[in-house]
Design a protein around this nucleic acid. Sequence first.
DNA 1: TGCTTCTGAGTCAAGTTGTCTCATAAGATG
DNA 2: CATCTTATGAGACAACTTGACTCAGAAGCA
Lengths: 208, 208
Amino acid sequence: MADSTDPRITRSREAILSAARELLREDGPAAVTHQNVAKRAGVGRATVYRHWPQPRMLLDDTMAGVRMPFFRDPVPPVRPWLARQMRTLADELALPEIQAVTAALFHGAPDEPDATARREQLIATISGQLGTALDSAARTGELQASADLQDAPAILIGPLVFRGMFERRPVTDAMIDHLLNAIGTWTASPSPAADQADVGRGRDGGGA
Amino acid sequence: MADSTDPRITRSREAILSAARELLREDGPAAVTHQNVAKRAGVGRATVYRHWPQPRMLLDDTMAGVRMPFFRDPVPPVRPWLARQMRTLADELALPEIQAVTAALFHGAPDEPDATARREQLIATISGQLGTALDSAARTGELQASADLQDAPAILIGPLVFRGMFERRPVTDAMIDHLLNAIGTWTASPSPAADQADVGRGRDGGGA
DNA sequence: TGCTTCTGAGTCAAGTTGTCTCATAAGATG
DNA sequence: CATCTTATGAGACAACTTGACTCAGAAGCA
């Protein structure tokens, strides 16, 4: 069932995963059952069982289908790159789909080691990327950190998550700016040439 | 069934809620079913149905039984009070019980308006208490805010939640200190006279 | 065209959910 | 202490869900 090219398989899998994603978004992880998904996808219940014998597999593949926001490919200068990443992350955390997966992720019921592993994986990835970027900024002198860089993910991302998941209000560019200043003092640019590109004020209005 | 004094009722209710809380803590909200709770509590299934006809009610009362961490009764000077509150909050966010309720709270499935209402209620209370305290600190001059005070809950609490729920690592006192500095400049001791009067007035704020 | 295999419909046993009944025992009342 | 009241546990019950299975037929492939 892995990489079959049979269009029937492809069609079924896509219909099923799409329906499962809808259910996850609308009613949470508990609603992603074989029966619900089959009905919503318009396929036979047996078909869902054939492709995903265990419910957990189905939920896993459903969540995997939702691209989670990362901090990808840091490029210097770090500050504007980081501001862009945080803007994107904040915006995505406002989407019901991302919220559903985030909630499911950190639910962390002890009977589901998979969920725990997935959460740790995501955190490790994000923290790793962020750490790499901030380390390089510290080395080049772009950032004079005032906080333990171990705390940076919590300080930078925590407020965005809180806003999106708890307060359910938009994150302003000013707030992102403020958070960036909270982890240390930024020098306009390590190399004067690159300077002018980013020092400009918070650019786009950055709506929801 | 409201406030009967019959010891049999009291006994049953307590055994049931205690068992439900255990299940919530150990296996998450989905495990809080009439059947599971009855078995764990050592009471008849019908007894659970008698007291809580709907599953949602049972889960609600179970969560209500878990005292959620608040920002209670601000006292001047604000900074040390706030540091204490944040330390307590951070410590409680490490407890499985609090984590389970927090996760259940902000799950926010659209089919459960109760969960949404409860989340909004909690956020409003916390933000209200925090806002009152910070406003008074700003008025007395103890705090020169550098951030929009609307963002303070996210900036102060967000990182604690992120640490406790996602990273699952302890929060250091240094981090709390750093977060407090992130919202503005604190003056060691404001004029004692103005301080007491002002905070005394600002107390009513709180609720939704 | 004929061959392969995926699909949907349906059946089935086992378990869960919500409701109801009834004998019993715990508690209140005199 | 005797009697009445009522919460309880056990169990019966229909409706539903969950996995597993079978099978005719349709979709895709050569």
